[in-house]
Amino acid sequence: MLDHFGFRVADLARSRRFYDATMGAIGLAVIDNSPTSFLIGRSAEAPIPFLWIGTDRPVFWREGDRTSASPLHVAFSAADLAAVDAFHEAGLAAGGTDNGAPGPRGGEAQHYYAAFLIDPDGNSIEAGFREMP
């Protein structure tokens, strides 16, 4: 449904360490993009759709636009429960803050297992696995 999405961060190196650890745990690639940004996608060979993360002001922003003070919430699909667990563990080791340990979410009817972290910029990052009944 989405082609790409992006958000700004305060410290690119700090964010890169966090996303290198967490995205690798759920099978996504962190892809070099420019000195001021990186991408998250399936792989360098199949980079679309992607998530852009950077420190510069995107060219399509209007003069005077500011980085939002509100945190974002981004949820990634994981291949299985073990990947959700690995995402959470890797994120904590890479400087993330626990915002919900791995476990069932939304009641039994949803068949959803997820973990939540706060990234170094205060954004809510989730990895989840949906078992289809």
Rank of each mutant, 00 (worst) to 15 (best):
P47L: 02
A115R: 03
L2H: 10
S34L: 04
L51W: 04
F60W: 11
A101N: 04
I53T: 03
E131H: 15
A127F: 10
A86W: 01
G122V: 11
Y113A: 00
E131C: 02
G128R: 07
P35E: 11
G54V: 02
F76P: 11
G100R: 09
T55Q: 01
F60T: 15
R57S: 10
A46V: 02
N123M: 08
R14N: 05
G122F: 13
M132A: 13
G24F: 03
D65C: 05
T55P: 02
A69G: 15
R14P: 00
P35R: 08
I118H: 06
R16K: 11
D119K: 05
W52L: 11
G106K: 06
G41E: 04
P47C: 00
W52E: 04
A83F: 06
W61T: 12
G128K: 01
G64R: 14
F116L: 06
F50S: 12
A86H: 04
I53N: 00
L92I: 15
A101W: 02
S43L: 03
T36N: 08
T67F: 01
R105I: 00
A114C: 02
T97N: 07
A90H: 05
D32G: 11
V9W: 08
V59K: 14
R105M: 01
I48L: 10
M23S: 04
H88I: 00
E63D: 15
G106Q: 09
T55S: 10
I53R: 05
A10M: 07
F116D: 04
L28G: 01
G106H: 10
Y113F: 12
I26A: 07
F87K: 02
A21S: 03
A44Y: 07
G103N: 13
L92V: 13
S37T: 02
I48T: 12
D32R: 09
R66W: 02
G96S: 06
V30K: 07
D11I: 03
R66M: 13
M132V: 14
P35F: 04
I53Y: 00
S15T: 01
